[in-house]
Design a protein around this nucleic acid. Structure first.
Length: 584
DNA sequence: ATAGGGTTAG
């Protein structure tokens, strides 16, 4: 057997080929002999017509051993090892090599910084990013456009959007990648509306034409916001500019339509993509059906992907399981879960979480707890929360207490956890325990999560926080809420079904109706949209039982279709009923 | 010779 290894330079389709009979290692040795400069960029192995890209293997094993043989390593040699470590699985090692360079007064250049920054991004290390930044300023590389964009990107990835933005504003030279890095960074870092604004500014300034990467960032922002009008415009732009030959862009379009509440449109795009569908395309579409509660279509697609010779991965299974959860397909879900291992996908924590959720919602709480006990990994906060959730609905005090104790031990300061336990006690009229839980909350200074929701009206996105009065129409909105409260009282609704929750947020007591962000958004929708149009609300947290009930009533009284997307799925309220079978 | 921006996830 002959093995040939070709050394490629980035973006080149030709290179130097080294051949050896038998071993891969000897071919590699052949290639590096007499060449202490380790700048192997991309290596392809040709093995009986099979092309394998193995650059990461080389980075992992080769540079380190060879590096140690060099007596006086040059900056290039250091860069080579940093590059290898940063792009493999040893980012921390890359950072420590960088410090070794600084201590040993080795000369660093812009590339050195670029590679360490990549490592910082991988382990989300903000303090280290700051260190490198100051080094960059000290060495005078701050004017380097490429390095500037890398810094910007890393700041965004480690969650420091303020610094990323500042860097962008102060950049002497900006190119399309700088814009893209900030747009994508803002979109991913919970500043989706800022990302869209920047995208609009880029188009207005007209210095750069948005490319594939730009529209990905912008689409991702639309998905987060549920901004359909903006998303449609971007989709049109993509078609005009023929950017839809890129699968990744198509996937983002599918996801955008799905997250904006239009599964049908998502499916049309999925069904008619001109390029070859990727694994992610299938996963995105399955997840879309799952979010919309269409379990059978999701499972059908899951079957089809196997027939299309696309092997399901852990995300595919998660999406399919999620579909079962939202459609109440307990048996299908369990069958799927049990068949994972034999199909080469080992269930991870999220898969276990999904099954616990599935059994819990079906009222099989003991079985769910048995799964938690039997799983090979340590249950995390999310898992205990998943188990605690249904205990309230099915009144299982025993397991609720176990889960809550775990949550308290793990230092959870999430008000929702306490509220759930308190509600379990309340349904059993154990008032002393209710008071006890409330005291714990006070003593622990439990962090209240500020909920927020969006509603898009005429292409403009309106954001509401709980109890928000910053909106220009806030008086009208609160008047509308008063009217709603009056009308639903006539329907026999008593504010405070979820009285324990209201008691905890003191100011919310009587006026619980007014303070929830999604109710503000719905009220604004009633004011601002014409009759007959659907109101779409996007909520950052999970919609609670009380709100669910109230919105159902609003849809009935005002005869309006209201769609609320929370973190998990879509709830379509129409004529007083909701499409979802499950209920929190 | 070598560097920056990208989709799905209870």
């Amino acid at each position: 057997m002959t093995i040939s290894v070709t050394k490629f330079v980035k973006n080149c389709h030709f290179g130097i080929t080294f051949q050896s009979s038998g071993h891969f290692d000897s071919a590699i040795n052949l290639m590096t002999t007499g060449n202490h400069h380790i700048y192997i960029y991309k290596i392809r192995v040709r093995l009986n017509n099979l092309n394998l890209c193995i650059n990461h293997i080389v980075h992992l094993t080769l540079p380190h051993s060879l590096f140690l043989q060099i007596d006086t390593p040059s900056t290039n040699d250091f860069n080579a090892i940093l590059r290898g470590l940063a792009s493999s699985y040893q980012p921390a090692a890359a950072i420590s090599w960088f410090h070794r360079m600084l201590r040993g007064s080795h000369k660093i250049d812009a590339l050195t910084c670029s590679f360490v920054l990549k490592a910082c991004a991988r382990i989300l290390a903000r303090p280290q990013t700051l260190q490198v930044h100051s080094q960059v300023v000290r060495t005078g590389f701050a004017a380097d456009a490429l390095l500037g964009t890398t810094l910007l990107d890393v700041y965004a990835k480690v969650g420091d959007l303020g610094s990323a933005r500042k860097l962008f504003d102060e950049m002497p030279v900006r190119d399309i990648a700088s814009w893209n890095a900030l747009i994508a960074g803002l979109a991913q870092g919970n500043f989706a509306s800022e990302a869209l604004e920047l995208f609009k500014r880029m188009r207005e300034e007209g210095l750069f034409r948005p490319n594939e990467v730009t529209v990905l960032g912008a689409l991702s922002a639309c998905s987060h916001l549920g901004a359909l009008k903006e998303g449609e415009k971007i989709h049109q732009y993509i078609r005009d500019e023929k950017l839809d030959m890129n699968v990744i862009v198509c996937n983002a379009v599918i996801d955008m339509y799905a997250k904006c509440g239009f599964v049908d449109k998502a499916f049309v795009v999925f069904d008619s993509v001109k390029c070859k569908k990727s694994l992610v395309s299938w996963n995105t579409m399955i997840m879309a059906f799952a979010m919309h509660g269409d379990g059978s279509k999701a499972l059908e697609l899951f079957e089809q992907m196997g027939q299309a010779d696309v092997k399901p991965d852990k995300v595919s299974y998660l999406a399919a399981l999620c579909a079962c959860n939202h459609a109440g397909l307990v048996d299908d879900g369990m069958r799927l879960f049990n068949s994972m291992a034999e199909n080469g996908v080992n269930p991870n924590k999220k898969h276990y979480g999904s099954v616990v959720d599935l059994l819990g919602r079906a009222g099989r709480i003991q079985e769910a707890y048995d799964i938690v006990k039997s799983m090979p990994m340590v249950p995390d906060v999310v898992l205990w929360q998943t188990l605690l959730g249904p205990c309230h609905i099915y009144g299982n005090v025993e397991i609720a207490e176990i889960a809550s104790r775990k949550l308290v031990e793990m230092g959870s300061n999430n008000c929702g956890d306490f509220v759930l336990l308190s509600n379990v006690y309340a349904t059993h009229e154990r008032w002393k325990d209710v008071v006890r839980v409330r005291d714990i909350m006070k003593n622990r200074d439990v962090r209240k999560v500020p909920g927020f929701s969006y509603v898009e009206v005429d292409g403009a996105i309106n954001k509401f926080f709980t109890g928000d009065k910053s909106h220009e129409k806030w008086r009208e909105i609160y008047d509308k809420l008063d009217e709603i409260r009056f009308k639903i009282k006539e329907f026999g609704y008593v504010a405070g079904t979820n009285y324990v929750l209201h008691d905890i947020g003191e100011e919310e007591k009587e006026n619980a109706l007014c303070y929830h962000s999604e109710k503000l958004a719905v009220a604004f929708g009633l004011i601002s949209t014409s009759e007959g149009t659907s109101i779409q609300v996007f909520k950052n947290l999970r919609i609670c039982g009380d709100c669910h009930f109230v919105i159902k009533l609003i849809s009935k009284i005002y005869n309006r279709e209201i769609i609320v997307r929370d973190r998990v799925r879509f709830h379509k309220f129409d004529e007083g009923s909701c499409s979802c079978k499950d209920y929190w």
